[in-house]
Design a protein around this nucleic acid. Structure first.
Length: 855
RNA sequence: GCGGGUGUGGCGGAAUUGGUAGACGCGCUGGAUUCAAAAUCCAGUUCUGGCAACAGAGUGUCGGUUCGAGUCCGACCACCCGUACCA
């Protein structure tokens, strides 16, 4: 018996597809188009199981749609700028460009071994000037359109390395390499006005029907539209006023303090003459810039000694605090605190001994007896203790107080968004240069279009901290395009989300020279019909891309609003973790399991314990390298494992026994054609007039499987599709090839099976197709269609319950009368026994499903 | 902290969307084949009790709605993702 030689077979079919250019496509108005895109990888050097999963899912969709007659665009490229290249440069003394390009070469080979149906002629790498020159042009167009501005914002500063740290590089408030406490610094940064589209981005979520609801909800919450009011409080002893933003103007009579952010102008001003406050602000600055860090820190405040006047209470004074939980980026960077009806304000008031006055009472409680304990009351209710607002509901009180504020010029109603503008400046080398020039006389001057691209200089050193662009001897020195005097280039580069915000459009015309993409190609291919990638990109990458598309639309680049019509978010690939007795992580390959289940280390022989399954990561050493798996078992086996069992949006557990099981099934399929029985008939044999009962049943099942698998693939239930196909494989065993006609059913079913397998196991599919006697390519076969008559049964099994408890089943003709179903059900002995003579109170009949006898 | 998600046999999961819980696979047990093993094939496998027929329990926990709840509602627990400079 020959063993399935995956290495030879897979390489051979990959060669055939490539030499016949099977997957290269052009615009073709005569066919419906379908654009499948998987999130392109960062070229870290080796593909990981997450990539294998992502690209398998995309490939199944691409191949299936192709079979369904679509003109399928399925491209691949590299998200090639980013921090890891700089880290590698520092650690291994390799140039980021060299490192990245070599990684791309290695990963391309690995991806090709998976047999993915990419149009490789469209491959792009974002670190090449041919790519990034176009986004420099886009940036300048955005600048002209008023969608770009410069403003100061805070960054994590490592005082030892003299460099800006990413949030990821801040561990417990300290720099990851230096260990020095991180400081906040303010830098002038380029921002894109995503907030200009806040309402549109929110509103249009509704039309993204083929996006997971959870992603739409996350984006909606991220944008965070709120209706509230600005309120201006008069300072006591100063001429100016403190403007706060609140979503609860109705609780103004319960206000007991105001608080401003540490970087609020008032705090900054007061700190100049108040050392204690300056210390407090410095302390806040050591917290790091991430929202999680700020929100989970202990809530602290500093009483400035300044007070403001309550706008509606004569003589009412509110102390003004500087507080570490007030964010300068949200609203006005200042709040009024109403402890009775906001938990954070309540915690703060208890801590600093401030008054707590309830101003909203639950509707079902006597207001006189209502007081606030440890929990703020945040629900709707009736306004109390609030003069002219008393007795109103929350909503009415809001509009009444806003009216009043506007009359008094002490504030107004407003709509506010949590969404902040997108800061795109990065103080890093390995990114796309921001194409502007700073001139002492002319200010910020855009690089003239005919001087694009501003190329990254290759000759740099990364052996000292800081951005090499700033210390490059010549690169930044240029003449001002306006006045001609000596000026300096911007040395910041773009956030790498910039590249990934339009790459889907570049794939439509990857060779376009003078434009990022042609309108003709974009109009044909866009939007992406199905986008597939990790859930971790639910907000940032996907929201930036939605914004970028609108900004491009505004500048005349394209005519669509939404870049991705369909979205599938996949779960992570997990694996069991192992630790030795010291608690250090151990590679799964080094763990040996004895018969009794005891685990030991392969080399040291010391005992090892198995931890729970976690996301594969180098740090926990629970990674399985796809290259080894493909080498041992082949791409089809790896693909099958990725598709079986777990639905794509859930986490997937990698197990050795699982991959073994997939491998066994591949071999089982192979044997179906490798050692065919002589009774299995020739290709093209006409259908016999008579089929055995078993033959008819198997044929029906084959057609039901076509219908079921089609449905499963349309809805991305790949695991169910695999299960159905395995069931059909099992059904082949029901046939007795000695029986007249069963040989024909066997071949017919096998051909259907092979066609259904094609998108998931393309190499094995081709090989089986050939073995079945065909000299055409399976990949060019249209998807099979199910005979509708074979898909429906005329007899159904109906469950019979007594008081909701199953007592038996009956066979009934499909869609028979309820009376007949009831009659048959009551005839069951088990039913008679259960009701033991008493008359049923009622009988519920759900046609074709269930009869429930209620006593 | 906040936003979003997940939870079903020993394990991954399925369940026509309120109607027979456990499809399919993994693992395990027994058998066939083999000098032996691997591979392969056949049978069994939610738990408890029982030789069995069968009975009872059962979808993270507690409570509710319903003739009927894995599915709907309320409260809670655990874990995961994101949290604006990782990609």
């Amino acid at each position: 018996m020959a063993r399935y030689n995956h290495k030879k077979i897979e390489a051979a079919w990959q060669g055939v597809w490539e030499s016949q250019n099977c997957f290269s496509v052009t615009e073709d108005e005569s066919r419906p188009k379908y654009y499948v895109l998987e999130m392109f990888p960062y070229p870290s050097g080796r593909i990981h199981m997450g990539h294998v999963r992502n690209y398998t899912l995309g490939d199944v969709v691409a191949r299936y749609k192709r079979g369904r007659g679509f003109n399928v665009l399925h491209p691949m490229g590299w998200d090639a700028f980013g921090l890891p290249a700089e880290n590698a440069a520092i650690e291994n003394k390799v140039h980021p460009g060299k490192w990245t390009r070599e990684n791309i070469k290695d990963m391309r080979t690995q991806l090709k071994s998976m047999g993915l149906s990419y149009d490789w002629s469209r491959e792009i790498a974002t670190c090449e000037p041919e790519y990034y020159r176009h986004e420099q042009k886009m940036f300048l167009d955005f600048l002209e359109a008023g969608l770009v501005y410069r403003k100061k914002s805070w960054v994590n500063w490592d005082p030892v390395e003299n460099t800006v740290l990413a949030n990821e590089q801040v561990v417990d408030g300290k720099g990851w390499r230096s260990g020095a406490p991180v400081e906040k610094r303010e830098l002038a940064q380029w921002n894109l006005k995503i907030t200009a589209f806040a309402e549109e981005l929110r509103e249009d979520l509704k039309q993204l029907e083929r996006w997971p609801e959870k992603v739409r909800i996350m984006q909606e919450n991220w944008i965070g539209r709120s209706e509230g009011a600005y309120i201006r409080f008069q300072y006591n002893g100063r001429d100016d006023r403190l403007e706060v933003y609140t979503t609860r103007p109705d609780t103004i009579f319960g206000a007991s303090f105001c608080a401003v952010a540490a970087n609020h102008p008032l705090a900054q001003e007061l700190a100049q003459s108040n050392d204690a406050l300056a210390d407090f602000i410095a302390e806040c600055g050591r917290m790091g810039t991430s929202e999680a860090a700020i929100e989970t820190a202990e809530k602290l405040g500093f009483d400035t000694g300044i007070t403001v006047a309550h706008p509606f209470v004569d003589g009412g004074e509110l102390p003004v605090y500087v507080a570490n939980f007030v964010l300068m980026d949200y609203g006005t960077g200042a709040i009024f605190g109403c402890p009775g009806h906001d938990q954070r304000d309540l915690d703060f008031a208890r801590k600093y001994d401030l008054v707590v006055v309830p101003v909203v009472a639950p509707n079902d409680i006597d207001p006189a007896s209502f007081s606030i304990g440890d929990e703020a009351f945040t629900d709707d209710g009736t306004i109390i203790n609030s003069e002219f607002l008393n007795g109103l509901g929350v909503a009415e009180a809001k509009s009444r107080i806003i009216e009043k504020l506007e009359q008094m010029d002490a504030g107004e109603g407003t709509v506010n968004y949590r969404l902040r503008d997108w800061g795109v400046s990065r103080q890093r080398y390995w990114g796309c240069p921001i194409p502007v020039i700073h001139c002492k006389d002319c200010g910020v001057v855009p690089v003239p279009h005919d001087e694009l691209p501003v190329k990254l200089p290759e000759a740099v050193t990364l052996d000292e901290p800081g951005n090499p662009l700033t210390r490059h001897p010549t690169w930044k020195h240029v003449d001002c395009p306006i006045c001609g005097k000596a000026a300096e280039r911007e040395t910041d580069t773009f956030d790498t989300f910039f590249e990934s915000s339009w790459y889907f459009a570049r794939f439509c015309s990857p060779d376009a020279d003078d434009v990022g993409f042609t309108k003709t190609a974009a109009n044909y291919w866009l939007p992406v019909d199905q986008y597939i990638g990790g859930i971790e990109h639910a907000v940032l990458h996907l929201l930036y891309s939605r914004f970028f598309t609108r900004a491009l639309r505004q500048c005349g680049y394209l005519d669509i609003d939404e870049p991705f019509a369909g979205l599938l978010t996949q779960g992570m690939v997990c694996h069991a973790t192992y630790r030795d007795d010291d608690g250090s992580w151990t590679l799964p390959d080094d763990v040996v399991e004895a018969d009794g289940g005891a685990l030991t280390h392969r080399r040291s022989g010391l005992s090892v314990s198995r931890g729970r399954s976690e996301k594969m990561s180098k740090s926990k050493k629970n990674v399985v390298d796809p290259e080894g798996i493909i080498d041992t078992y082949g791409a089809d086996t790896a693909r099958l494992f990725m598709l079986s069992d777990s639905p794509p949006d859930r986490d997937l557990d990698w197990t050795d026994s699982g991959i073994e099981g997939a491998w066994r099934y591949i071999n089982r399929l192979w044997r179906l054609v490798d050692e065919p029985s002589e009774a299995f008939c020739e290709r093209g044999t006409p259908r016999p007039e008579q089929l055995s009962k078993a033959g008819q049943a198997v044929l029906r099942q084959a057609h039901k499987t076509i219908a079921g698998v089609s449905e499963d693939l349309d809805s991305f239930h790949f695991n169910k599709a695999v299960a159905r196909i395995r069931e059909l494989t099992n059904a082949l065993d029901e046939l007795d090839l000695a029986t007249e006609g069963d040989g024909w059913v066997y071949r017919e079913t096998l051909e259907i099976l092979v066609q259904l397998l094609c998108p998931m196991l393309p190499h094995l599919g081709e090989e089986m197709w050939k073995a079945l006697g065909y000299d055409t390519l399976l990949v060019d076969q249209p998807w099979p269609s199910a005979d509708p008559e074979m898909v429906v049964d005329d007899v159904v099994t109906v469950a019979v319950q007594v008081n909701g408890k199953l007592r038996g089943t009956i066979e009934l003709p499909k869609d028979c009368a309820n009376a007949r179903a009831e009659e048959e059900a009551l005839k069951l002995e088990t039913v008679a026994a259960a009701i033991s003579g008493s008359a049923p109170r009622k009988v519920i009949v759900v046609p074709n499903r269930i009869v429930n006898v209620v006593l």
